[in-house]
Amino acid sequence: MTPATGERADAARNRRAILAAAERLLAEHGAQHVSLDRVAAVAGVGKGTVFRRFGSRTGLFHALLAERATRLREAIESGPPPLGPSAPPRERLLAFLDELSGLAARNIALIAAHERACADDKYADPTYRRWHDHVRALIAEARPDADAHFLGHILLASFDGDLVRYMTAQGDANRLSRSIRALATTLLNS
């Protein structure tokens, strides 16, 4: 077993292979061509292994997004400023949105596939809930008079996969970050 996660070495290897295969298929062929069968074949594991581990295509996309968001989660929980807990809420919020912009721009196909797979209940997705809880708490601290719950959803809606693709299509990935930062600043100053 690996000490950090309690996961057997072969299970960890299979998980990494499955997530890499799903990411490869997403990048090369788009979400419509990501099935548990194809992922298993590319990963070199049985379909049952993929199914037992992730349950469904949606579960696979949940796990892949969570994997990509791990560094960000660790930074907001225990990292240094401006993402970490010792920074003022406004600075933390803007730094978080900048990091999330970069994550979204680097993972457009995954963000869009995840949204489509989770369309029935995207607000229940564990990664989305974690992000929303963080954004809501920072807004509530910075602007106690605001509806932080609603404003958190508004800011996170800016990371819609199709919108991210559109905003970064001209080769200016920083445009997304600048625009979301401006929106957040306006909301915090209102």
Rank of each mutant, 00 (worst) to 15 (best):
I18N: 02
F51S: 12
A148V: 09
T58W: 03
H29F: 04
P80E: 14
P80H: 12
S179Q: 13
A105Y: 05
R143H: 07
K47H: 08
D10R: 15
P80D: 14
L36C: 04
H134T: 15
H132K: 02
A63E: 13
G161T: 06
R130A: 14
V135R: 07
R181Y: 07
L83S: 10
R143K: 09
A87Y: 06
A22F: 00
E74H: 14
R106P: 01
T70W: 08
A21E: 00
V42K: 02
S190G: 15
L65Q: 10
G55V: 05
L60Q: 07
R16N: 09
L110N: 01
G46D: 13
I108C: 08
D133H: 11
D133P: 00
A41Q: 11
E141K: 03
L19R: 04
A137K: 08
L72H: 01
L151R: 10
S101P: 04
G59Q: 13
M167G: 08
L72F: 08
R68T: 00
S56V: 01
E91K: 04
E23P: 05
D145W: 05
A105H: 03
A173F: 09
L176V: 03
A69H: 12
F159Q: 02
R181S: 11
D160A: 04
E91D: 15
E67C: 09
Y123E: 15
N14K: 13
P88E: 13
R90Q: 08
L138A: 12
R53I: 00
A66N: 08
R8D: 10
L176W: 03
L100V: 06
A169K: 06
N174L: 15
T49P: 01
L188I: 06
H29A: 11
C118M: 08
R52Y: 11
T127N: 12
A31T: 04
G44A: 00
G102D: 07
K122T: 13
A20P: 01
G6Y: 07
A104Q: 06
I18F: 00
L183Y: 05
R136F: 09
R16D: 09
P3M: 13
E23N: 13
L83E: 08
K122E: 14
P85H: 02
L93V: 03
R90D: 09
A113R: 06
R71S: 10
G44C: 01
D172V: 01
Y123M: 11
Q32G: 14
D37C: 00
Q170K: 13
G59D: 12
V39M: 02
C118F: 05
T49H: 00
G59H: 09
A169D: 05
R52S: 10
A117G: 14
G161D: 11
A12D: 08
A140V: 06
G161M: 12
R57K: 15
D98C: 09
A27W: 03
T2Y: 14
G48W: 01
D172F: 01
D125S: 12
A140F: 00
E23Q: 13
A40D: 02
S177E: 11
R15G: 02
L138P: 06
A119K: 06
L19M: 06
A169E: 09
Y166I: 15
R90L: 02
A95I: 03
L103K: 02
L93T: 02
A137F: 04
V50L: 00
A4M: 14
D145M: 09
A20D: 11
E77H: 12
L72R: 05
R129G: 09
V45T: 04
P81I: 07
F150H: 10
L187E: 10
A31Q: 10
S190D: 14
